[in-house]
Amino acid sequence: MATNAAADKYSVLLPTYNERENLPLIVWLLVRAFEAHKFNYEIIIIDDNSPDQTIEVAKQLQSLYGEHHIVLRPRPGKLGLGTAYIHGIKHATGNFIIIMDADMSHHPKFIPQFIAKQREKDYDIVSGTRYMGDGGAFGWDVSRKLISRTANYLAQTLLRPNASDLTGSFRLYKKEVLARLMEECVSKGYVFQMEMIVRARLLGFTLAEVPISFVDRVYGESKLGGMEVVTYAEGLMYLFANT
């Protein structure tokens, strides 16, 4: 049951596309969080051939922090998040995988809390939540909040997943659990994150949540357009009818 904590290794998957501003900062914060707790870790940077030469920044970071901590697994073009995870799992040497965004909206300071939570009851998944306890989001106007609150309420009502944040993408998985879920899930984008949780419940995996503060895009822009709302509604219906 309980794993030997000293033998645990955490592989962070960082898919990047035009993140040369953020990548050094997020890596610095990651290294600080892991070193402070003496965790065994590696950061796998999966760059999809960014035009802004993110890879050049990644190489600098690798020479700074070492090849055992910074692993480069670039891909020839923009191939999407789902395949980035599959690609990353294949190369990960840790027994745990952490997925997060490289754009600084997810703060590495929460990772030690994820790990502590995981060890409490040997959970299969620990998911960051913006909708519980001290969790929340910075940089959202009223309409953005209303959309996400409504979307979350609909998902809670229709899917009853017993998890407060389905669309978050800051999570810790046991490696074999993530690999198993990747075989099952067919959706993309926000719906993909939702499907992961729903399928995990169906397969009987255990899940715990840790409140996180989501700081929306320090650099660059994020938007939620009409198209994304439609895609979300379709995905919700798909999961309602098929799970």
């Binding site: 969790g135 929340g136 209303l146 503060s213």
Partner: peptide, 17 residues
């Protein structure tokens, strides 16, 4: 009411920023 309450009590995380 549920959506309105959660909207009103949403945490803005200014300190985190």
């Amino acid at each position: 009411m549920a959506i309105g309450y959660r909207l009103a009590t949403f945490n803005d995380c200014n300190e985190a920023s």
